[in-house]
Simulated scan of single mutants.
Amino acid sequence: MTAPTEPLHHDRVEYTPLPQNVTRARHRAQRLIRLWGHPELAEKTALLVSELGGNAVFHGTLRGRLFRVELFLTEKALRIEVTDARGELLPTPRTAAPEECFGRGLLIVEETSDRWGVSELIVGKTVWCELDTA
């Protein structure tokens, strides 16, 4: 699915690249999906925003550049998009060693969402995932 042209609901917020803003984005997304009538997706939404937002903060930001979290709810799916400024660093899932603290986020996204991918931009990239609502 490409970004919907006429979603039932849409939210877009830009954040400074600080870890506490990943928490803010997660809480906002979880609250909105409940308000939009899909409380059954709230926990998955929170997890996905946290993983993608954390990746944006730790791997995708440049000094003075924000990261953006967008939610699109259509009749068939919730689409989560996280955009950052580092388009040269495209994410790929990997297998982390047992002693590593990081490196499992995209595997979590892959297992939790119904679809995910990356859209390259002129400046930066958008990592997106979708949860089916039907």
Rank of each mutant, 00 (worst) to 15 (best):
M1P: 06
P4Y: 09
P4A: 06
E6P: 02
P7H: 08
L8I: 12
L8G: 09
H9N: 10
H9A: 11
D11N: 08
D11L: 13
Y15G: 00
P19M: 07
Q20I: 03
N21M: 06
N21C: 01
N21I: 09
V22Q: 07
T23P: 00
R24Y: 09
A25K: 04
A29G: 14
Q30G: 10
Q30Y: 08
R31F: 13
I33T: 15
I33A: 11
R34I: 14
H38G: 13
E40G: 14
E40N: 12
A42R: 06
A42N: 01
A46H: 08
A46E: 05
A46L: 03
V49S: 07
E51I: 02
L52R: 07
G53S: 07
G54M: 06
A56S: 08
F58D: 03
H59V: 04
G60W: 01
G60E: 13
L62K: 15
R63G: 00
G64M: 01
G64H: 09
R65P: 00
R68D: 14
V69T: 10
L71K: 01
E75Q: 11
L78D: 05
L78H: 15
L78P: 14
I80G: 06
E81C: 14
D84N: 15
D84T: 14
A85V: 00
R86V: 11
G87E: 10
G87V: 04
L90D: 05
L90I: 10
L90C: 14
P91F: 01
A96Q: 03
A97C: 06
A97D: 04
P98S: 11
E99V: 05
E100S: 10
C101P: 03
G103E: 04
R104P: 07
G105E: 03
L106G: 02
L106A: 04
L107Q: 06
I108M: 08
I108R: 04
S113L: 02
S113P: 07
R115F: 02
R115W: 08
W116E: 01
W116R: 11
S119Q: 13
E120D: 02
V123G: 00
G124M: 06
K125G: 03
K125D: 00
W128Y: 12
W128P: 08
C129H: 07
D132R: 07
